[in-house]
Amino acid sequence: MTPSPPSAHPSGISLNHVTKNFGRKQVLTDVTAELPSGRIYGLLGSNGVGKTTLMSLICGHQFRTGGRILIDGIDPVENPMVLQRTCFVHEDQLYNDSFSVRDILAVIPAFYPTWSAETADRLVTRFRLPLDTKSKKLSRGQRSALAITLSLASRAAYTFLDEPYLGLDASSRSILYDELLAEYAAHPRTFIISTHLIDEVADLMEEVVVLEDGVVAVQTDVDEARAACFIVRGREAEVRTLVGDREILTERHLGTILSATVRGAVTPDDRTLAERTHLTIEAASLQEFVAALGLHALDEVARKTEVAS
């Protein structure tokens, strides 16, 4: 293998025109992003858009089809040093069937020089993980709790959490968010979290990366993402006047009423006009913004297919 080219960003993850095909299906068409280390990122986007695939490529668990990936300036492909610095417990992680939770917790620390037994013990207690239960007998929620325990206790410089809350009840999710922030505060590192419960996790993130249609549709600070779109509702003609030539991501109709999700920030002029023409303007939550981007991408695909046929 040729040595990796030196990176302009030695500290963090650098993605350069990354592509990934499964057979003839292209999942990631052109992913480019710089993710400086030491932040909590939210990796968002519709189902099947390639979030899990991208995380696997960054950790070197899968091979990319094209492009360049560097993690702290090193190509992750077959690099044991990168494996030590990354932790990604997959949703359908296979453990040896004969292993109990206790056995798994005894084996995994060998892979991580940064392992914290204290964190592992604390999370096992808080999640009430059954130490003597065999891995294949664990419930969905218990598998998630085990994955979170391994991920946080690894203290890996780059920790990937792929929908970590699956099957967890509200109080266990609360434990996850508290422990994540406490770990991050005490031992700052990079977390990349994929999630569909966007509004529940949004405040934990510093930056969001939205994947849509195989590319990075948006990468921004959470506050900016929140201000990146708004919802205006009222009589259709007045709504269209207010929107002007700005992009409407999604529209919902109810008789003569139009509710439009508009890309852009609300201006003082918008507020004045809305008051005069009886329109309501609301901030869109991050979840609404990401959902609107996803629907918009679907519409675009449908339009392209229509033109082609």
Binding site: D178, A185, L204, D223
Partner: peptide, 13 residues
């Protein structure tokens, strides 16, 4: 860090 954990927000916030 105390505010981050209490309000459950990113420390940067």
């Amino acid at each position: 860090n105390e505010l981050s954990v209490h309000y459950r927000v990113n420390p940067a916030t």
